[in-house]
């Protein structure tokens, strides 16, 4: 489970995240929408323990992240916008390395099974990452989440730059993880993908969570209007 309790981050006088309260239960996929600088990546950085909150707390599976930096990452997987892996290692090797340093050891067949489950084609398993497209690298990231048996998945604009087919495939994979009980938080600009895969959607602006929706209770058009009006583009809303 992912939750934040009045999570606030300030850089000097500038508040980049203002008393954020979020709860994402197992089996939920929460999409955070917002323009650049809205506070989406800061939220993810705080949940990962990359930065320390000014006040409030980020909580992963009941553990306050700032106090349990390593423990909170045991069952957490993270896929950034551009998942960078070691270019000289193959997909299997990268998966083995990252799951290994995280404390999980697997046989080669098991690693291949994770990659297969993540939708990577078998003939790419033993190719070096330097030959992979972004979509293929994101699939290795999903395989890592599977290998770690992650109960929490944090994604920071994972579909930006993916072609529609790859983006769609990625969405299907996330749905699969969600249905397996993983709590997923995804920061994205992609309203269409958010409406399609999310269970909950939040719109952020200037570090504040302005609106929240249950995805099944809102149409794409209403979501678009809500987003545009939140961003201050009322004249563009239909």
């Amino acid at each position: 489970m992912i939750s934040t309790d009045n999570l606030t981050m300030k850089y000097g006088e500038t508040t980049v995240l203002d008393k954020l309260n979020l709860t994402i239960k197992p089996g939920e996929l929460y999409c955070l929408l917002g323009a650049n600088g809205a506070g989406k990546t800061t939220t993810i950085n705080l949940l990962l323990g990359f930065i320390k909150p000014s006040s409030g707390s980020a909580i992963i599976n009941g553990l306050v992240v700032a106090e349990n930096v390593h423990k909170s990452k045991k069952n957490l997987a993270y896929i950034p916008e551009n998942l960078m892996l070691y270019p000289n290692l193959t997909a299997v090797e990268n998966l083995d390395y990252f799951s290994g340093i995280g404390g999980k050891s697997f046989k080669r067949q098991e690693l291949e099974a994770f990659l297969e489950e993540a939708g990577l084609q078998a003939d790419a398993f033993h190719n070096r990452i330097s030959t992979f497209s972004k979509g293929m690298r994101q699939k290795v990231g999903i395989a890592l989440a599977l290998a770690k048996n992650a109960s929490v998945l944090l994604l920071d604009e994972p579909t930006s730059g993916l072609d529609p087919k790859a983006s769609n495939e990625f969405g299907i994979l996330l749905q699969k993880l969600r249905s397996n009980g993983v709590a997923i938080l995804m920061a994205t600009h992609d309203l269409f993908r958010a409406k399609e895969i999310a269970t909950h959607i939040g719109i952020m602006k200037n570090g504040q969570l302005k609106q929240e929706f249950v995805a099944s209770e809102i149409t794409l058009s209403d979501l678009e209007n809500a987003y545009l009006s939140t961003m201050g583009f009322k004249e563009m809303a239909v």
Binding site: L48, Y78, I101
Partner: peptide
């Protein structure tokens, strides 16, 4: 600089 640090740091290691 290559970006792998974010994936590394998301693992339970110092």
């Amino acid at each position: 600089e290559s970006g792998t640090i974010r994936l590394l740091a998301s693992q339970p290691i110092s």
